[in-house]
Design a protein around this nucleic acid. Structure first.
Lengths: 185, 185
DNA sequence: ACCATATGCCAACAAGCGTTGACCTGAGAC
DNA sequence: GTCTCAGGTCAACGCTTGTTGGCATATGGT
């Protein structure tokens, strides 16, 4: 497959879509606005992506890219995971886009569920004391990490926005660690 | 002010609005659908609440109703707060409604910020080791509690939905406790 | 009985949305 | 040079939305 002339246009549309979906959510982000951002006609968006739903699917397609933590000392996993999440969230708009959409769109929520169940679930299963606890532990990790993302990137609670990455990791890591390998009180 | 005949209609509209906003979010919940749920004409909604924005404000008007925890042993506050949040969230649709809206509407996000900064901030200030740390500690508590609510009521992650209230409190309480009175690691 | 008024319904408006099809335009193949 | 077709523009469609004003009806005070 050789590069076509239209590839730059496709990329521009996708970049604009990611930005709009991330800041406005699915329903408030309009095809017309995305097209304007990409300096293109709205009809082009339809031609290249079919419809708004499919465009969103393309824009919010991502991977948690969880690192391989085999060999890492058990006690460090919380820190490593917290740091990874923070960095990942800071550098990929698609995550915020999916988060914003997942709150009101069942289809997006389903994608979120699958991503966290499979990707995070698999990692947790490798480190949880008992394998059958893995789903619950992964779910708990999700509550803390998604909650942090929600407050920092979507709601923008000032004290949470003000935390430096290192401070954030220092606070979150023990929580993650306990959800992964600890016990309820 | 004596009771008017229209009060039952007003209440029916408000109840329908809360439900729609809670399940659909602000933009997907339509005046027409709310009116249909309340078995009245859409024009009535406008007459009684002015516009959609004001209707939402009335439907999402609520209070965290945080308990007075003075005198409670310091070590128990985490448990008490976790239990209170869980119960509160389970019994008031307005909380989910505001959460869903806050993710995509700046006005709703602002309300969320104010509620958590003032109501939760005040409680935290009374128990935090140093008063100047209160905002950050309140913010951290918010990340965990809102994250839990997000995963349980909005995203409906199965393992999180499956937790019994007691299990949930047992897992969350130590986290809340550490954010309130503990130290980062 | 009568009237003022609160309550409610109906029809319509303007605006914005996703989406479509017809029509240009310019580059590359022959 | 001409033909072809992908790349791009334009105007319009059908639909839904929030919102409005006019009109019917029921209520309750006198």
């Amino acid at each position: 497959m050789t590069a076509r002339r239209s590839d730059t246009t496709r990329a521009a549309i996708l970049a604009a879509a990611r930005e709009r979906f991330a800041t406005d959510g699915f329903e408030r982000a309009t095809i017309r606005a995305i097209a304007a951002d990409a300096s293109i006609d709205p009809a082009m968006v339809m031609r290249y992506y079919g419809n708004k739903e499919a465009l969103f699917a393309a824009a919010a397609d991502f991977d948690l890219r969880l690192p391989d933590l085999t060999g890492v000392p058990t006690g460090e996993i919380g820190t490593r995971l917290a740091r990874h999440f923070l960095h990942r969230w800071d550098t990929d708009e698609a995550l915020v886009a999916l988060l914003r959409a997942a709150v009101t769109k069942e289809g997006a929520a389903e994608r979120m569920r699958i991503i966290f169940a499979t990707q995070l679930g698999a990692l947790v299963a490798r480190h949880a004391p008992a394998p059958e606890e893995a789903p619950v532990r992964a779910g708990l990790v999700a509550t803390q990490m998604l909650g942090f993302a929600l407050c920092r990137y979507a709601l923008r609670l000032p004290p949470v926005v003000g935390l430096s990455p290192d401070e954030a990791v220092a606070w979150l890591a023990p929580t993650i660690q306990r959800y992964l390998t600890g016990t309820p009180d």
